[in-house]
Amino acid sequence: MKIGIKIMPREVILDSQGRAVEQSMKMNGFSEVQDCRIGKYVEMNLSLEDKEAAKLQVEKMLKEGGLYNPLIEKFEIQLM
């Protein structure tokens, strides 16, 4: 089963990368950009077939396996 995990910085946390890209795009004339936040996307293939079991495993990986840093990040699981 294929799972997607979107990991983004928590809202209160400064996203220095997003800030730099936002400024750069604006400087290049893309004035429509209002703000930009950058995170990462993880794609994983699990040997499980049940959707709920897969989601549970991924949550475990996130919370116990160090897949994300809860102090500075938040996540969203997407079943594909």
Binding site: I13, D15, S16, L62, P70, I72
Partner: peptide, 19 residues
């Protein structure tokens, strides 16, 4: 931390060396 209690987490200071 429990990921549900967002308000209980410290707001970690992030340093940006580029800035």
């Amino acid at each position: 931390f429990d990921d549900d209690s967002d308000s209980k987490k410290p707001n970690v200071q992030i340093g940006d060396p580029f800035y």
